[in-house]
Design a binder for these strands. Structure first.
Lengths: 202, 202
DNA sequence: GTCTATACGAAGATAGAC
DNA sequence: GTCTATCTTCGTATAGAC
């Protein structure tokens, strides 16, 4: 768009993503993004005509694509179980490295979003959907039936996101470790067991 | 404490919990709680000397105990699997009834909490721990070994919380439905399969 | 693209009367 | 227990110069 690449614009989006992880969506104000990224105050609405909402939205898209891209790369590399392990390990390292202050920026936006900013909810939903699909491919490649792969992808994404939240609150990686351990058992069980009919729920 | 029971105080705590569910922690301002609960503005700091932080804290404790109490009641009633189904159903109904606006208030606080309000993180952690223990009892009663029951409790709580977040973003109960379906398979698998040694992760 | 200055609202919290 | 100011800080956003 611009005649030359803007450095401060990219730094603002990265800074916004970092603040989303550590402080949540509401606390990610324009002022704090500027302070964190060192970008100049005067050009905020030049780079982001949509104001703060646009900035957050781009940060969500960037952070979302980063994770989904990792999963895609793992699919191409061809070792599904190692890829899932890496997925758990990524969050574990982020938690520890940040002193248990960093969580998932997508979750932060999804939880704090309300009717006044519907676009942010849609962006968060798109990131979740993208991630689910990438992970489902991984499970199917690992030998699960397609339907089970999709269901399991939802379950695993949900469990990881929930575990990260609990890890932050507990200041411990124990919830994520427990989830990883159960996950191993789960994948083996779903691959080995025949698909019996299951009870219908109300 | 007071010579007679205060009505507006309880209404404020309930109102705060409702706002936490629908709008998140940062959006749960004292003003909004007052407007939502119809409580008088003048007595806020009489009832809550600790200010807004104390109000949120009590709302977290109240909402947390409500869910944990449901699980406890299910344990006493003696039908573990029905109890878990009810656990999933509770969230499903809350989502649908609120037009997919309501989430988990504990998650909201946990995600938005930062270093300036460390007590809130501790309160959220306590609620999660309480819920994990109640659910672990349920699984052990269902026939799982104690260690697996504890691990599975963490996993299921995490998956439900994560699924609720995704349901809100997607405006659909599909993630929660998928989690419930996988959960059935998981419980059966972990009860039936012998406890093999599993690979150590870094 | 970047600057300073400023308008405007909402938030938490306190003071002092009743 | 409840009322009505009021203080201060912080947030988004805009205006207009450079």
């Amino acid at each position: 768009m611009s005649p030359r690449k803007s450095d401060s614009r990219a730094r603002m989006v990265l800074g916004a993503a970092a603040l989303l992880r550590e402080y949540g969506a509401s606390a990610t104000s324009v002022d704090r993004v500027l302070a964190h990224s060192g970008a100049p105050r005067g050009s905020v609405y030049h780079h982001f005509p949509g104001g703060r909402a646009q900035l957050i939205d781009e940060a969500v898209a960037l952070a979302g694509e980063f994770i989904a891209g990792l999963i895609d790369a793992a699919v191409r590399a061809g070792d599904p179980l190692a890829a899932i392990d890496a997925f758990f390990a990524l969050w574990r390292h982020r938690l520890v490295d940040s002193g248990f202050r960093a969580g998932c920026p997508i979750v932060a936006v999804a939880v704090e979003t309300n009717d006044e900013a519907p676009q942010l909810a849609r962006s968060a939903a798109a990131v979740f959907a993208r991630r689910r699909e990438a992970l489902a491919v991984l499970f199917v490649r690992h030998g699960l039936p397609e339907e089970r792969g999709r269901l399991l992808a939802v379950f695993v994404i949900a469990a990881v996101e929930g575990a990260v939240i609990m890890c932050r609150a507990d200041r411990s990686t124990a919830p994520l470790d427990a989830a990883a351990e159960i996950h191993d058992l789960l994948v083996h069980a779903l691959r080995d067991r025949p698909d019996r009919g299951h009870a219908q729920r109300s």
